[in-house]
Write a protein that binds this DNA or RNA. Structure first.
Lengths: 230, 230, 230, 230
DNA sequence: GATGAATGAGGCTTCATTCAT
DNA sequence: AATGAATGAAGCCTCATTCAT
């Protein structure tokens, strides 16, 4: 997202052509470039040289703005998490009926991952390193608790209407919503090989979305409580 | 697994003490060491030096048995997929009632990931590289179609008994079964930060298993078909 | 010294607060900052960034006043040598009896080095570079010949009074006077290690001064000439 | 010295021509090359690339033998101090009459510095860094206490014979013996400029030796004690 | 077969200096 | 005059791989 991404004009990053000496902008250009590089190669596979090349500036500039590759990685992570969160906040769940709200949330979340495949690689990298960067980042800790709360309210409304089950752990639910899409998108290549099925196209993506939406809703719907709890 | 891991004698890996010149064994020791190294650091983060150190042998030996780091990585991947598959095959699904069979499959699969966290890192690494190694590996392509078939049979039995829904895409289902656990286990660190919840302990692991089991079963159970299609 | 250091008001260096556009003053502030930086790190270890930081001004200013790091180093050297010389000149040797004059000179010189440890590092740095900067500096060549002359006069008086030996090479003598203190002060750290003795405190400094004073005076005193020349 | 330097054959360092794969020798070659580079440029001015070039080997080799530039510097320091000490030990002071012994010690020490100008630069560098490397080196701490003892014995003999003064601090004395030569040799370039005298040739070196020998002996000789205290 | 010394390309970072503003 | 962003050469160090022994 790089903070003000797409704000105002549809302006675009890259070498900051035309404008010169705009530190604010330069910083964003660097984060954008780093995001691409880290996304394509992971943390260890990323090269500071290539990040510099992507910015169209010299390598030294990176270090004028960020103290190290690590520091830059943190900035990229903060940026992309910020972006995901603001995407989430753009979705006003309380305008929907409970089931429709869930459907929206699932689709919205999934589409974010489809549109921003960088997120997956960056987050995988960070988990490989046991979240050592995120833990240092004040801006990220607790970042998703607001979303938890809003989801919680949605579920409550559904429960009050008698259409949603009781005993829903919102965090577990959200992890499932994310995980069902994330895992598929992240592991399409190996999954495609072991099942000998083409999972890379848009068709496969839509099939997945439909499947996972059903699964989540079947879990939430109240009917099963009749069968006795599980 | 390293192919014949723990098969035959209860012999154990490492420097192959006592025995000399057992090429077969040496090869396994190397794969074992490489597996650990790749698992802790990912492909790019792994160091051939450290792999050598872990084996207790010299670096030249690695290159005697494997032509490159890439080659070694392929061997490790083949080994661990082989292992997962044989774990799967140890689970004889047709001995179970349909629902119990699903429960077993979910738990079995999940526990494999819990016990072999290497799998996750290795597979993530391979997906970062778009499965370039796996695609070269004859032994892996189609590796999971047998499992698909067996799962399919289990579902069919459930459908015949009227307890499972119709219209189940077995591959999608299996991806969900795996993904619900894998995603959680792989991303525990960042999830823990953004939700400010401790997800690392065994308690959290069990909660997860229970949640995902419910979700999958709720999806499979027939009741919902009454509500009209989803 | 920075030329007019502490001259006139008791004003002090640093960011030149309050006053604006005082090029003369700015120049001095820079030299002062550079002196500290070079003194702490030697020529190669010094950083232009840190010099700028010490001045509280931007790096561009340095290059406005001095054309290069080298140029700045020359300015610092000239400044500190100027300072040493004016310290020397403050000592009016002809007001003393010969022996007392020597004692004063030794103590005065030594105390200068004690109080200005920068001198030692700067001069060592310059010798490492074979005095390439000094040789370009017109203001420094011959700088100490006045002192030689005054020392020479003092010795002559002593010789006339029959208390000092004949055949004294004044330059050699001055080098000894300086060297006996300089070497100790410059190499306290390694000497302390190899002799396992603490040489860093003020106690050790005073012991040294006394020892070297005795040595120089014993050399100058006439008595030995009785023993036959050496 | 590089440990076995000049031992056995008159073999010489450099690229280890002819011989291949002789780690022991390679290590010495590296230390030799590093010694030259550090001696010519000081610690900060030295370049690892140039050290590698001097060895005739690739840069990676340095790091196969030493973990860092720092580590290499320590090795060089240890080597040269070892060398100085063994030079010292080659001088059997108790074979000389007291005064002759002192003369020998002075000349011996001075000539070592003349022949090994590296020593001066290395030690100056180390003092700039406050002996941080030496303090970590077990082999150097206390290295000169044996010499102190031997010098002490020589002085005692002189005192017993009534030709040397009492109250001699051996460490101070030794620092003077070293310092009178070291300071001159180290600072010839700047001294030459400020006194406008050529101090670089062999002539100047010999004049210096003579002057400093006189000075030290005049200090040690007993006569002055008649004059009362100093 | 086995060792580990040696290679050399390339990784991350620094730094004196320049230059647009 | 002054700022500090930008440059690019170079600095220290790493690492997969090769090769003499």
């Amino acid at each position: 997202m790089v903070a003000t991404r797409n704000r105002g004009s549809g302006s675009e990053a890259k070498p900051a052509e035309g404008r010169k000496r705009d530190p604010e902008r330069t910083r964003l250009v660097i984060i954008e470039a780093a995001r691409e590089e880290f996304a394509e190669n992971g943390y260890d596979g990323a090269r500071t040289d290539r990040i510099a090349t992507r910015t169209g500036m010299s390598k030294g500039v990176l270090y004028h703005y960020f103290s190290s590759k690590d520091d830059l990685f943190v900035a990229v992570l903060e940026d992309i998490y910020q972006e995901l969160r603001s995407q989430n906040e753009a979705l006003v769940l309380d305008e929907f009926e409970p089931e429709a709200g869930i459907r929206e949330l699932i689709a919205h979340t999934y589409r974010y991952f489809v549109d921003h495949p960088e997120f997956i690689v960056l987050v995988n990298s960070e988990n490989l390193m046991k979240a050592q960067h995120l833990e240092q980042s004040a801006s990220i800790r607790n970042m998703f608790t607001p979303l938890s709360r809003r989801l919680s309210e949605l579920i409550s409304r559904g429960q009050e209407q008698g259409i949603f089950r009781s005993n829903v752990d919102v965090v577990e639910l959200y992890i499932s919503i994310v995980g069902l899409g994330y895992f598929f998108l992240a592991n399409r290549w190996t999954l495609g090989v072991v099942f000998n099925r083409d999972l890379l196209g848009q068709g496969a993506e839509e099939v997945r979305l439909q499947h996972m939406t059903e699964m989540v809703l079947d879990y939430l719907r109240n009917v099963k409580s009749l069968d006795g709890k599980e």
